[in-house]
Design a binder for these strands. Structure first.
Length: 218
DNA sequence: GACCAGGCACATC
DNA sequence: GATGTGCATGGT
């Protein structure tokens, strides 16, 4: 297995430190984590801008808003009816269980908090882990579609199947380091979004699907 | 016009 | 347990 740290260093050199998550507050990280589900970040930015303009980027405003009103504001992020209800479920959880500034979560272990997040409707493994790492600063490695695709293309996946197995793969091959987890995931997203599309066709540039120079992979 | 984007829940077999 | 489907916008 190629040294994962070496891969990280190569990415860091190419893309520079990513300074993630792209949000102004920890609450905004949580909102973004729902909005970005299966959605390009540029569309999430439009939705976040709408919420900010409406002064609705806070728990109270979201909880007091009708679903239809919330859906209209987040429309650019797609799946807006679905995400409006998911957003309310998450904000209700954060507000009532986490309290002001989510401070009450401090007394709860990583695994217990992860279980509680996963019990919220609309919060799956990636959303929960993004919130744990980027908003709550817990040492949890986030897996997403890019991470899996890149691992498979590079042949470092060791036959992993499913979210949990990929997460174990990265955790067992990396030192436990929140800052490393933070930036490595961000680097993988940068690589994925730039060079690693779902349909690679060039045998010489397997990470670049639009290259037509060297023929098509079977 | 087809493809893609930082998933998830639910139905069906 | 595995697989398929609905949810939807905006950029390339």
């Amino acid at each position: 297995m190629q040294d994962l740290l070496q891969i990280y260093k190569t990415l860091l050199k190419h893309f520079g430190y990513r300074n993630w998550w792209p949000a102004r507050t920890n609450f905004e990280v949580c909102v973004g984590a729902i909005l970005t589900q299966n959605t390009a970040w540029r569309n999430v930015r439009l939705a976040l801008a709408n919420l900010r303009r409406a002064e609705a980027l806070n728990p109270e405003a979201i909880l007091n808003m009708r679903n239809e009103e919330l859906a209209e504001l987040i429309r650019p992020a797609g799946y807006y009816n679905l995400k409006a209800s998911r957003l309310k479920s998450l904000v209700e959880f954060l507000h009532h269980q986490g309290g002001r500034g989510m401070r009450r979560f401090a007394a709860i272990s990583d695994s217990e908090l992860r279980q509680r997040l996963l019990s919220v409707k609309g919060v799956g493994p990636e959303t929960a882990d993004s919130i744990l790492l980027y908003a709550l600063k817990r040492p949890i490695f986030v897996i997403d579609a890019y991470t899996i695709r890149i691992s498979q293309r590079l042949g470092i996946d060791e036959g992993c199947d499913g979210y949990q197995e990929f997460q174990s793969l990265f955790v067992t091959h990396l030192p436990l380091d929140i800052d490393l987890y933070n930036d490595f995931h961000a680097q993988l997203v940068s690589l994925g979004a730039t060079y690693c599309k779902p349909r690679p066709i060039c045998v010489q540039c397997p990470l670049e699907p639009r290259c037509r120079k060297f023929g098509v992979e079977s």
